[in-house]
Nucleic acid binder design. Sequence first.
DNA 1: ATACTTGAATAAAGTACAATAATCAAATTG
DNA 2: CAATTTGATTATTGTACTTTATTCAAGTAT
Lengths: 172, 172
Amino acid sequence: MKHGGKRKGAGRPKGQGQYGEPTKPIRLPESLIEPVLKFVENKGYQLPLFTSKVSAGLPATIDDHIETHIDLHQLLIKNTGTTFLVRVSGHSMIDAGIHEKDLLIVDRKISPTNGKIVIATIDGQLTVKRLYQKNNQLYLMPENKKFKPIPITEENHMMILGVVTNVIHSLL
Amino acid sequence: MKHGGKRKGAGRPKGQGQYGEPTKPIRLPESLIEPVLKFVENKGYQLPLFTSKVSAGLPATIDDHIETHIDLHQLLIKNTGTTFLVRVSGHSMIDAGIHEKDLLIVDRKISPTNGKIVIATIDGQLTVKRLYQKNNQLYLMPENKKFKPIPITEENHMMILGVVTNVIHSLL
DNA sequence: ATACTTGAATAAAGTACAATAATCAAATTG
DNA sequence: CAATTTGATTATTGTACTTTATTCAAGTAT
């Protein structure tokens, strides 16, 4: 009664698991298990980045345009702990290319220097404006002719929450 | 020789681990272990999303503006498998708010219908244009007066790679 | 009494192990 | 002899278990 027997090629083939490669058990905090599984399903959020540069000769296939693979979060967020998002409402910054419903990426860690576009609260109200300093007076500048500059005074309790690093605009 | 003994409060306290919460071993593909650890370090890429809406009364703290926490990838990428990124070069779509060096999120799964902004190859060259159909003739339309519409012919081997869903513009 | 040492208690973290799955070839069947 | 069954072989996968870390109180020394 001998079946099979020791031989080359016997047994379950390698790379037949759900990931097609070897795995290792890693301990994860329970609250992140579900997000991590989603992250893994999505191949670590890696997306192909295409270049428009033409390599020597005509590119034969679409894949010839792939330059690298990147993760949007890693590309856009330098400091996870100090970064937040803001959904734009209103049109006061339309000339800076910031439209209603755009998503802004904001980093608290970046210094709000003159000329930076910032998120600020004025009397508790969130707003996006360009920071502008002239003759020792600070202003929050809208970029839309219909709006007026807002001088910063003691009374309006202005607080800068962070500097806008990116604008995400939907085309759909 | 009895030390300690059974008693309330003995032993290592809960929540003293590196994550401050219970953990579980999860098997992960080896190639994703490093990205997953980074993902976990960054709290699952969850970022606070602020609203500009003012709740009843003046918001007391910044946290009162937090509406929810979201992950940029999950928010922006509907189909990881059919989505890619393109770095813009050139100014042919400036009037559509697409600037040089902007990053475009492109989905192959979306139908390139009339009026959509698409990524196409013409003679192997990558390009962003608005798709426009008139009198049974297709055009790739730049949005910059300095550029001319490109009629699609048999000869220029046009191929649409996908529809642009989002434009990411850096302000720094 | 006060400071220091020691070991029991408990949680955290990594890994070894057992259960499961998949494949192939020998054995069996029709 | 072709089709089917069986069991050896090997990879995958989930988790139990061991090891390590941390804290507290009893024991010991000063």
